[in-house]
């Protein structure tokens, strides 16, 4: 009975839902109030806040772990490129199939502990080192100097210049304590005496007659790398 006008008094003819709807339309019957939802807008806001906070916490944790990993990787990369300089030298003269060189030996702190001048028959200079594995790195010990004309065994030994009171002066000024220096000295002596030391090897670096000679008056440095490699670089 939609559209039917209510009579005075508010009663509408007819029955059931249609009558109620008509009465509501006429304003005679008040629409029942919806029960208020508990929490209203706060619950979804709180849920959103908690989710955002959880995501923030999780990503913060991830980024903190990532920062640690990045620092470790950067340290490892720097360690691989780090260089120790046990020896610097300069060829001062080349004449009549002989060469004259001046060399200086350095400890881990970069302090010079020995220097000398040497004359050898030959034109290609070999600087011989012994590499000893220690932990995850290799330590380089000056061994001897020779040329292409001089057999290594007849070269100039550096053992006496390096060793002092049973300890290799080449490894002072670093992380090694007295006991470790004594142990290194014992191993160094064993290597130079030709006794087998597990993992140790030697490496004689030199200039190349075919490609490039050491220039007179130019200072070169011998560089020992963490992984056991030895290089010669111009200073």
């Amino acid at each position: 009975m939609i559209g039917a006008k209510p009579r005075k008094g508010g009663r509408v003819a007819g029955s059931g839902a249609a009558a109620t709807a008509a009465a509501r339309e006429a304003g005679a019957v008040r629409r029942p109030r919806r029960p208020r939802r508990r929490g209203g807008v706060f619950v979804p806001l709180l849920v959103l806040l908690l989710l955002a906070a959880a995501a923030y916490g999780a990503f913060s944790l991830v980024t903190a772990l990532q920062r640690g990993r990045i620092a470790t990787l950067e340290d490892s990369i720097l360690a691989l490129q780090a260089e120790t300089v046990p020896l610097r030298f300069m060829v001062t003269e080349r004449r009549d199939g002989r060469l004259v060189l001046r060399y200086r030996l350095y400890d881990l702190a970069g302090e010079e502990y020995a220097a000398a001048e040497l004359s050898l028959q030959g034109e290609t200079l070999y600087l011989d080192f012994l590499a000893l594995p220690r932990g995850d790195a290799w330590l380089a010990f000056p061994y001897r100097i020779f040329t292409e004309r001089v057999a290594p065994a007849a070269g100039a030994p550096l053992f006496d210049a390096v060793m002092g009171e049973g300890r290799p002066r080449s490894h002072r000024g670093g992380p090694f304590g007295e006991a470790e220096l004594l142990e290194l000295g014992r191993l160094y002596a064993a290597m130079t005496a030709g006794e087998p030391v597990r993992g140790a090897f030697g490496n004689a670096v030199h200039d190349l007659a075919e490609l490039r000679r050491f220039e007179l008056g130019v200072v070169y440095k011998v560089v020992a790398r963490k992984k056991g490699g030895i290089e010669i670089l111009e200073e």
Partner: peptide, 10 residues
Amino acid sequence: RSVYGSAPHR
């Protein structure tokens, strides 16, 4: 970086 000779030995 560098070109040189190297004679590892043992």
